[in-house]
Design a binder for these strands. Structure first.
Lengths: 230, 230
DNA sequence: TTCATGTTGCTTTTGCGTTAGCATGTCCAG
DNA sequence: CTGGACATGCTAACGCAAAAGCAACATGAA
C-alpha cells in the first residue's frame, strides 16, 4: 500500500499536526526525511493524496490534513458495500463527557468540526465541546458541527451556525441529515429517497441536488437542533 | 486550516483576553508579532473572523472575542480560569468582550412569550423559562421570545425559533432588535437609522419596511442568539 | 475638536508550493 | 543480460498567495 517513505512522511505530518496544529512546510518535511530537495516531498505528498491518506488545498501553504493513518485504516473507495469502517474520527479521540456533573438538564456534546453546506468538505478542527440544554435534544447520542457554507440557507441554516446532530444511521424522507459520501466527504442536506437512489437536496437554488446510489451514501445523523450567536 | 501567523495571532489574543480581560489593540498586536504596520494585523483578523475563530464588532476598538482555539499546541478549555473575567471591571463596561466560548455554564432566562415577526403582536408576559448555554450570550441581561411569523425568514429566523434577546435600549444600525412601536406592539426587525427617522426592515420581500419617527419606537433589546428544535 | 484606533487601497516582498529535467538503484519480464 | 516500470534523489526556475509596508481616511470616545 504505502512505501516506506510515504509511511514515514505521513507519520511525520500527523505528528506535526497534533503537536503544533500547523502542518509542516515542504522545507520542514524535507529536513525531517533528510532530503536535500523539496520535489521529492512533492511527489510523496501527491502519492499520499492520490491514495486518500491526506487532503490538501491546492496552491496553499501548509494546508495539509491527515485523513487516515497507515495501520488499521486501509480501505479504498468501494462504492458498493457497506463495510463499516469505524465511523468515529480517524485521528482524534473525543472523550464523551467525563464528569459532566449530572446536575441540571445540561448535556455536553462534542464539537466535531465544520461541515460543508456547500461543496462537500470535511474538516476536523479542535476537539472542543458544546454545552446545550437537554431540552433542545431528543433521546439518543448527539454531536455538534459548525456549519460552513450557504447551501442550506433557505432552511434557515447559516454559515457559522452550530448544527446539533443526533447520531443515527437511518432517517426519513425529508429530514435534514449529515450524509457521508463515498466514505470521505460529509455534507448537510435534505434527504430524499428516490426509489433505489438517494437524493441530497440543498436548500439554496444556487446549488444542484446530488443523486447517489444506496451504497454511496451513509447517513451519520440527523438534524436535532440549531444554535446561533449574534 | 490556519496559517502560521493566524495561529500565532489567535493565541496572542486569547492570552491577552484571559489575562487582562480586554482585547489588544491593533497597535499592540502589531508589536506582539513584530510587524511595522497595522494593516497586516487587519488582514489576519479578517481571516480569523472569516474562519469563525474570532468575532468582532465592526468599527469598535478592542472589541474582539475568541470563539474557539486552534487545534493542538495550546492548553484547552479549563473551566476555572474563565470565571474571573468580569467581576473586577468596575464601571468601564464599554467594549469589554464576553467570556470565551469555553464557558460551560448554563443560564436560565425568562421566556416572555411570542413575538411577531409578521404583523406586530404584543409580547405577553409569560413566566416560563428557557435554559441556554452561557456561551451563546454576551454580557448583560437576557430574555427569550418565541418567534411567530415569517417576516425574518431571510435572516434565517423561522417561525417557532427561540430568539435570545439581550436587554438594551440602544442598538446600532443593521442589528436585529425587538422594537416596541407606539408603546404597544413589539416586533423583531432589522434596525435602520435613517437620519431622524427609524426604519424597521423585515427580512422577507413579501413585507414592507416600516418607517417611524424617533419617538414612536423604543428598542427593547437586540438579538443575541437563536435556538431551534427539529 | 482631538486623540486613539480601526479601515482601505495600493505596492512590494517573501514564503513556499509547483514543475521540468535529469540521474540512480531495484525489481521483474522478456 | 536488457529494457521498462517505479520509487527516489537532486537542482533550478517559476508563480501564486500570504504577509508586510506605507499612507490616507473613517469612526468612536472624551
Amino acid at each position: 500500500m504505502l512505501t516506506q517513505k510515504q509511511h514515514e512522511l505521513l507519520c511525520f505530518i500527523d505528528e506535526k499536526l497534533k503537536d503544533s496544529g500547523v502542518s509542516p512546510s515542504f522545507e520542514e518535511m524535507k529536513e525531517a526525511l533528510g532530503l536535500k530537495s523539496k520535489s521529492g516531498i512533492h511527489r510523496l505528498i501527491s502519492a499520499l493524496e492520490e491514495r486518500h491518506f491526506i487532503r490538501r488545498l491546492p496552491n496553499r501553504a501548509r494546508a495539509l490534513e491527515v485523513l487516515k493513518l497507515p495501520e488499521g485504516g486501509v480501505h479504498e473507495a468501494e462504492p458498493s458495500n457497506v463495510i463499516s469502517l469505524h465511523p468515529d474520527t480517524p485521528v482524534r479521540e473525543v472523550a464523551s463527557s467525563p464528569a459532566p456533573a449530572a446536575n441540571n438538564d445540561v448535556l455536553e456534546i462534542p464539537l466535531h468540526g465544520r461541515i460543508a453546506a456547500g461543496a462537500p468538505i470535511e474538516a476536523m478542527e479542535g476537539q472542543s465541546a458544546l454545552s446545550v440544554p437537554a431540552a433542545l435534544l431528543g433521546p439518543g447520542e448527539h454531536y455538534a458541527l459548525e456549519v460552513s457554507g450557504d447551501s442550506m440557507i433557505d432552511a434557515g441554516i447559516l454559515d457559522g451556525d452550530y448544527a446539533l446532530i443526533q447520531k443515527t444511521e437511518i432517517a426519513r424522507d425529508g429530514e435534514i441529515v449529515v450524509a457521508l459520501i463515498h466514505e470521505e466527504e460529509a455534507t448537510l442536506k435534505y434527504l430524499r429517497k428516490d426509489g433505489r437512489s438517494i437524493r441530497l437536496d440543498p436548500a439554496n437554488a444556487a446549488y444542484e441536488p446530488q443523486i447517489y446510489g444506496e451504497g454511496e451514501v451513509r447517513i451519520q445523523g440527523k438534524m436535532a437542533g440549531l444554535l446561533r450567536r449574534y
